[in-house]
C-alpha cells in the first residue's frame, strides 16, 4: 500500500509553510499528498425558507469555487515539485471531516497548519489543530 499524507488546507497565510513541510516529508518518504479542503458546515444550523430553497444551488456553486479557486492552483504548484497529488473536498466540521478523509484515503499521517489564535477564542471554541491532535487516528504534525 502506498504511503499517503493528508494535508489540511484552508488557504490562509500559514499554509505556505505547511505545504513546504509536507512536500519535504512526501519526497523523503516517497509518499503521495492528499490536499484536503473542508467547507465548514453543520446540519444543525438554522436557515430561512429562502436559504433552504436555494441550498442545493449554492452548494454546487461553493464546491465549484473551492475546486477552481483554492484546490486547482495548489495542485498545479505541487505537481511542479514532482510530488503525486490528489484532492479531497468535503462539507462538515473541520477536524472530524479531516479524520474521515484520512480513513477514506487510508493515509498514514496528517499535516495541518496552526491558525495562531490564542487566548479567549480558542479557549471557548477550541482550535482545529488542537482538536485534531486529540481525535486523529494517525500521527498529526502541526506546522507553526
Amino acid at each position: 500500500m502506498s504511503n499517503k499524507i493528508v494535508v489540511g488546507y484552508d488557504s490562509s497565510d500559514s499554509t505556505k509553510a505547511t505545504l513546504d513541510f509536507a512536500i519535504g516529508l512526501a519526497k523523503s518518504q516517497g509518499a503521495a499528498i492528499v490536499v484536503a479542503h473542508v467547507l465548514e458546515w453543520s446540519p444543525y444550523s438554522f436557515l430561512t425558507p429562502d436559504e433552504l430553497e436555494e441550498r442545493h444551488k449554492r452548494r454546487g456553486e461553493e464546491l465549484e469555487r473551492a475546486e477552481t479557486a483554492i484546490l486547482a492552483p495548489i495542485v498545479k504548484s505541487l505537481e511542479k515539485s514532482g510530488v503525486k497529488v490528489t484532492t479531497a473536498l468535503k462539507y462538515g466540521g473541520i477536524a472530524d471531516t479531516l479524520c474521515d478523509i484520512v480513513k477514506a484515503e487510508g493515509a498514514t499521517q496528517i499535516v495541518v497548519g496552526r491558525t495562531g489564535s490564542s487566548g479567549l477564542s480558542s479557549r471557548i471554541f477550541g482550535s482545529v489543530a488542537g482538536t485534531l491532535a486529540q481525535i486523529s487516528p494517525v500521527p498529526v504534525t502541526i506546522v507553526p
Partner: peptide, 17 residues
C-alpha cells in the same frame, strides 16, 4: 443521512425552519 450529502438541506434544518 449520507455523509456525501453534507452541505445539502438536512432533515433537521427543514424541520427547524
Amino acid at each position: 443521512s449520507d455523509p456525501n450529502d453534507a452541505g445539502e438541506v438536512s432533515h433537521f434544518q427543514a424541520l427547524a425552519t
